[in-house]
C-alpha cells in the first residue's frame, strides 16, 4: 500500500529510526552548484551568507533534495585558525600554507572563539536564514571537520602522520584544542538551526590509518567529541572505507555513516543494520560523465542494495558533488529516486 506523502523531515526521521518512510530520502550534497545558480564565481558565492542561502533554496526547489546543505568549504575551519584559503574557479578552495609550521607551534595554538571569528558567522547566518524559511520541514545539515582529521589542513598529511606516530604528547595537546573547537562549532550550528552535524572524519578511515591506530586515536576523539555535540551526527569518511571498523562506529555515538562506493553497499547495510543509517554511495567523480540512463540505472541498483527496511539515505560517496556534474544528471538522479525509491521497494 502506498504511504502518505511525508515532508523531508518526516522522511528522514523515519529512515533514521530504521523504518520505511514514503520513499528513500535523497541528500544531494551540492555546494558550489549554488554559485552556478546565481551566476557568480565560487569565491563571490561563499563571501556572503545570503548567497549560500539563496543558492540552497534554489537547488532544493530544483531537485527536491531532502536536505539543505549550507556547507561552505572545508578550509573555512583552518581559516578560523588564521590560515589562508586559496580559491579556484572550477572547484572547492584549498587550504594555503599550514598554520602549524613546526611541532613547537602546537603549544602556542589557540582555539578560535566562534563568536569572535567572522568567517564562521557567514555559515551561522546562512543556517539561520534557512531555518526561518524551512520552518522545520527540511533538515539542515551543518558540517564540522573532526578534531582528528582537521590537522591534515593544519600541518599537512606527512607531518600529521609523524605527529600521530612519534609525538604522542603534542598529538594529544592538539586534539584537546581541536576537540574544544569542534564541539563549540558544531553546537553553534545546531543553535543557529542546523538539524544535524556531518562529522567529516576521513583520517579515521582504514583507507588511511590501521584499525588498531584508529582505536587508540580517532575513535577515542570521536567518542569524546560526539558525546558533547548537542544533536545528531553523521560520521562521513569522504570516500574512505569503513567496513572493517563497523563494530566500533555505533559506539562513537553517531547516528549515520557516510560510505564509499569502493566497498560493497549490501555488506555495509548489513553491518550497520538497525544500528546506523547508511548514507551513500553514488560515485561523484564518475557522475560527471553519466548519461541520464546511466544515472537512473545506478540509482535503481543502489536503492535495491540498501533501501529495504529504512536506515538508508541516498547520497554521493564523498560529501560534496563536484562542480562539473551537470544539471541534467542531477535531475536524472532526483527523478530516479522518485521512480525506484517509493516504499515498498519493488523486487
Amino acid at each position: 500500500m502506498k504511504k502518505k506523502n511525508m515532508t523531508s523531515m518526516e522522511r528522514v526521521l523515519t529512515t533514521l529510526s530504521h523504518n520505511e518512510p514514503d520513499r528513500v530520502p535523497l541528500f544531494l550534497l551540492l555546494t558550489m552548484h549554488g554559485a552556478k545558480e546565481l551566476g557568480i564565481s565560487i569565491q563571490e558565492y561563499f563571501s556572503k551568507a545570503e548567497n549560500v542561502f539563496e543558492g540552497q533554496i534554489r537547488l532544493q526547489e530544483k531537485y527536491n533534495s531532502d536536505c539543505f546543505y549550507p556547507f561552505f568549504y572545508a578550509p573555512i575551519e583552518v581559516e578560523a585558525f588564521g590560515s589562508e584559503v586559496i580559491f579556484r574557479e572550477d572547484g572547492p578552495p584549498n587550504a594555503g600554507n599550514p598554520i602549524i609550521k613546526n611541532f613547537g607551534d602546537i603549544k602556542n595554538l589557540k582555539t578560535p572563539r566562534i563568536n569572535e571569528t567572522k568567517v564562521l558567522h557567514k555559515v551561522l547566518k546562512s543556517i539561520e536564514l534557512l531555518k526561518e524559511k524551512s520552518k522545520g520541514t527540511i533538515p539542515i545539515i551543518g558540517v564540522a571537520v573532526s578534531p582528528f582529521s582537521l590537522p591534515v589542513m593544519q600541518l599537512g598529511f606527512e607531518n600529521y602522520f609523524d605527529l600521530m606516530y612519534f609525538h604522542k604528547d603534542l598529538f594529544n595537546h592538539l586534539m584537546k584544542i581541536n576537540e574544544t573547537f569542534c564541539i563549540h562549532w558544531a553546537n553553534a550550528q545546531l543553535e543557529a538551526g542546523a538539524t544535524a552535524i556531518c562529522y567529516f572524519d576521513p583520517v579515521s578511515s582504514p583507507t588511511l590509518i590501521p584499525k588498531e591506530l584508529y582505536f587508540e586515536t580517532g575513535y577515542q576523539v570521536a567518542k569524546r567529541t560526539i558525546s558533547k555535540i548537542k544533536g545528531p551526527t553523521a560520521t562521513h569518511f569522504a570516500s574512505g572505507s569503513c567496513l572493517s571498523i563497523a563494530n566500533l562506529l555505533p559506539e562513537t555515538g553517531t547516528a549515520v555513516v557516510g560510505v564509499s562506493v569502493q566497498e560493497d553497499l549490501s555488506a555495509l547495510k548489513q553491518a550497520f543494520k538497525n544500528k546506523l543509517t547508511v548514507l551513500g554511495n553514488l560515485n561523484g567523480i564518475e557522475m560527471r560523465r553519466w548519461t541520464s540512463d546511466e544515472a537512473s540505472n545506478i540509482v535503481r541498483d543502489t536503492i535495491h542494495k540498501a533501501a529495504r527496511g529504512g536506515g538508508f539515505i541516498l547520497s554521493d560517496n564523498h560529501g560534496e558533488i563536484p562542480f562539473q556534474v551537470q544539471d541534467k544528471t542531477l535531475s536524472a538522479i532526483a527523478d530516479a529516486v522518485r521512480e525506484f525509491g517509493t516504499y515498498p521497494i519493488a523486487e
Binding site: 602522520f161 600521530m164 583507507t207 588511511l208 590501521p210 591506530l213 572505507s241
Partner: peptide, 11 residues
C-alpha cells in the same frame, strides 16, 4: 586490497 592503510605505505 584493503589489508593495510595509507599511513603504513607512507611510513
Amino acid at each position: 586490497n584493503g589489508q593495510l592503510s595509507l599511513s603504513q605505505v607512507y611510513m
